[in-house]
Simulated scan of single mutants.
Amino acid sequence: MTSSHDQILSGIVPPLCTPLTPSGEIDTTSLVRLAEHLLTGGVDGLFVLGSTGEVAFLTDEQRGIVIETVVHAVRGRVPVVAGVIDTTTPRVIPHLEQAAALGATAAVATAPFYTRTHPAEIEKHFRLLASATELPIVAYDIPVSVGTKLDAGLVTRLAQDRVIRAVKDSSGDDTGLRQLILSTSEAETEDFAILTGSELTVDAALSFGADGAVPGLGNVDPAGYVRLFEAARADDWDGARAEQERLFALFGLAKAGDTSRMGAASSALGAFKAALHLLGVIDCPRVSDPYIPLDAAETAIVAAHLEKADLL
């Protein structure tokens, strides 16, 4: 691992779920409790308004409530990075302004989506974002959602020019992740951080040289991912593998939903929220419309995974 104290992010930085009330409003009390749950687990930062935070479903006002609530709750103990995810550059910039005004440490942006873009246009997008704010920009590589994989050469150029200061790689492409780590290392990009978005291959990514992880399952078991990271940092790769394998089994809860009646995202997000509800962290496991909530039988599957992992 190549973590530096000058990096804006490293270690375990979970992407927070966004707790909702039964009527679909932001449950700020539960959100504060969730932030404290993660901090107690020893995490190194918090990422609000990512995919796990259901950012695409929230109004601009709700996004602001999430950022303001978490920044106030954290009180500078760890970095709070905020997703500013939207379809095109002119739509992202107001989210950047909101995140800066509310005290976020950095902003997380994807490539443009819905509209088709050329790599040169993606590069222009990130350069325009960087020129529009003093917040550090974290590139979010999530091709399953935006339809575009960020090229290692593009990311390296942007890192060299300090247009972006980190990348969250949720591509699921371990070969591409390794190429990116090698490319940025050879280019001697200053204090650039690479974090994996995978819950299941964190030990492998850290062995490649990644600087940390942004695991959605970290909402449920933050301390487990912190133990994994600390073992890797100590070159205890057997310990890191053992912790990863325990978390791999725990991640089975994400498949609790019946695929004949809901999609994978409903199942995973519903399971994370059901787990947090069972653990007493959030008051309500509601997911955003049109996601479908878990039923009692599916929630029982989540509970069984928590019990097997000695969390419940």
Results as ranks from 00 to 15, higher is better:
residue 30 S to I: 05
residue 30 S to Y: 07
residue 30 S to D: 10
residue 31 L to Y: 06
residue 32 V to H: 06
residue 32 V to D: 13
residue 32 V to P: 11
residue 33 R to I: 01
residue 35 A to E: 07
residue 36 E to N: 15
residue 37 H to F: 04
residue 37 H to D: 06
residue 40 T to A: 15
residue 40 T to F: 08
residue 41 G to E: 02
residue 42 G to H: 06
residue 42 G to I: 03
residue 43 V to T: 02
residue 44 D to W: 01
residue 44 D to G: 07
residue 45 G to I: 05
residue 45 G to W: 13
residue 45 G to Y: 11
residue 45 G to K: 05
residue 46 L to D: 11
residue 47 F to H: 13
residue 47 F to I: 07
residue 48 V to I: 09
residue 49 L to S: 01
residue 50 G to W: 08
residue 50 G to S: 10
residue 50 G to Y: 04
residue 52 T to D: 07
residue 53 G to A: 03
residue 54 E to R: 02
residue 55 V to M: 14
residue 55 V to I: 15
residue 55 V to G: 00
residue 56 A to K: 08
residue 58 L to F: 04
residue 58 L to D: 00
residue 58 L to W: 00
residue 58 L to S: 09
residue 59 T to G: 05
residue 59 T to Y: 04
residue 59 T to M: 10
residue 60 D to N: 14
residue 61 E to C: 01
residue 61 E to M: 01
residue 62 Q to F: 03
residue 62 Q to C: 02
residue 62 Q to A: 05
residue 63 R to P: 07
residue 64 G to M: 12
residue 64 G to E: 06
residue 67 I to R: 09
residue 69 T to A: 07
residue 73 A to L: 13
residue 73 A to W: 09
residue 73 A to R: 10
residue 74 V to M: 10
residue 75 R to W: 11
residue 77 R to N: 11
residue 77 R to W: 10
residue 78 V to F: 14
residue 78 V to M: 13
residue 78 V to S: 12
residue 80 V to Q: 10
residue 82 A to T: 07
residue 83 G to E: 00
residue 83 G to A: 05
residue 84 V to A: 13
residue 86 D to M: 03
residue 86 D to P: 08
residue 86 D to G: 02
residue 87 T to H: 14
residue 87 T to A: 15
residue 88 T to H: 15
residue 88 T to W: 12
residue 88 T to V: 15
residue 89 T to N: 11
residue 90 P to N: 06
residue 90 P to W: 09
residue 90 P to Y: 09
residue 91 R to N: 12
residue 91 R to I: 01
